[in-house]
C-alpha cells in the first residue's frame, strides 16, 4: 500500500520572462517502509519536489497524497498540523530549535500536539542514536554530526507516516556523514519508518532500497524492483 503518492506535480515560479518550470509533471509512489533516494543535480527540481511532498509549498498543479489524504488541497493551518503529526523533516542544517535542549527538541512535535510522550520509546530512540549523555545539551554545544542525529531522533519520535530528508549529510565531513547516514538507515529499519531522501551524491543514494532520478523537473528513472 502506498503511503505516499504524487500525481502530476507541476510547479511554476515567477511570471513571463522570469518563469521557471521547476517541476514538469512528476508522478511518484512510495510504499510503507521503503527507503527511497531521489537523486538529481542541482537545479533538477529535487528540492522543489521535496517541498511539495512535505507540504511546505503548494504545487501549481497536481496532488500529493499521504496516507490517502490529499495535502495539496489543505488550508495552511491544516497542513501545518498535518506536518506536525505525520511528516518528519531532516534538513541539511539548522534543524534544531536553538533555545531548546536535545530532549526538548526531540519531543517538540509531540508537545506541540499536547500529546503524552511515550518515554520508553523516546529513550530507545535516544539510545539507538547514541545521544544518551547529551539529553540536556543545547544545540550549540553539539557537533555537526550530533546535531543531525538529534534531527533524526526528532523525526522518529512521533512516528510520522514519512520522513523527508534533504541532503542530511551535506554539511558534514565524510566520516561523520557516513555514521549519520548509517544511523538513518538502521533506525528506519528498526522503527519501520518510510524515508524519502534527497541527494546529489550517487554513493549516498546507494543506501536506499530504490533510487529515483530526477532531471530538469522530470523523473527519468524510478528504480523499480527489489
Amino acid at each position: 500500500m502506498n503511503i505516499l503518492e504524487a500525481k502530476g506535480l507541476k510547479k511554476i515560479y515567477g511570471e513571463g520572462e522570469n518563469k521557471v518550470n521547476a517541476l514538469r509533471g512528476v508522478d511518484l509512489e512510495v510504499k510503507k517502509g521503503e527507503f527511497v533516494a531521489i537523486v538529481g543535480t542541482s537545479g533538477s527540481g529535487k528540492s522543489t519536489l521535496l517541498h511539495m511532498l512535505g507540504g511546505l509549498d503548494r504545487p501549481t498543479e497536481g496532488e500529493v497524497i499521504i496516507e490517502q489524504k490529499d495535502i495539496s488541497k489543505l488550508k495552511d493551518e491544516e497542513v501545518t498540523i498535518f506536518r506536525r503529526r505525520k511528516i518528519g523533516f531532516i534538513f541539511q542544517a539548522f534543524n534544531l530549535v536553538p533555545v531548546l535542549n536535545v530532549y526538548e527538541n526531540i519531543v517538540l512535535p509531540i508537545e506541540l500536539d499536547g500529546a503524552k510522550i511515550d518515554k520508553d520509546f523516546v529513550e530507545e530512540i535516544i539510545n539507538t542514536l547514541g545521544l544518551s549523555g547529551k539529553k540536556e545539551a543545547l544545540p550549540n554545544q553539539l557537533s555537526g554530526g550530533q546535531q543531525q542525529r538529534v534531527a533524526i531522533a526528532r523525526a522518529l519520535a512521533f512516528r510520522p507516516a514519512i520522513i523527508l530528508a534533504d541532503e542530511p549529510t551535506g554539511n558534514l565531513d565524510s566520516k561523520t556523514g557516513q555514521d549519520v547516514l548509517s544511523l538513518l538507515k538502521v533506525s528506519a529499519e528498526k522503527f519501520s519508518q518510510t524515508i524519502v531522501m534527497i541527494t546529489h551524491n550517487d554513493e549516498i543514494a546507494q543506501l536506499a532500497d530504490r533510487i529515483i532520478r530526477i532531471e530538469d523537473g522530470c523523473i527519468v528513472s524510478k528504480g523499480e524492483g527489489r
Binding site: K175, D179, S182
Partner: peptide
C-alpha cells in the same frame, strides 16, 4: 581478486 577491508567509524564498523 577480492579485497576485504575494514573501516572504523564512530558508531559503525564497515
Amino acid at each position: 581478486g577480492i579485497t576485504l577491508s575494514v573501516k572504523d567509524y564512530e558508531m559503525f564498523a564497515c
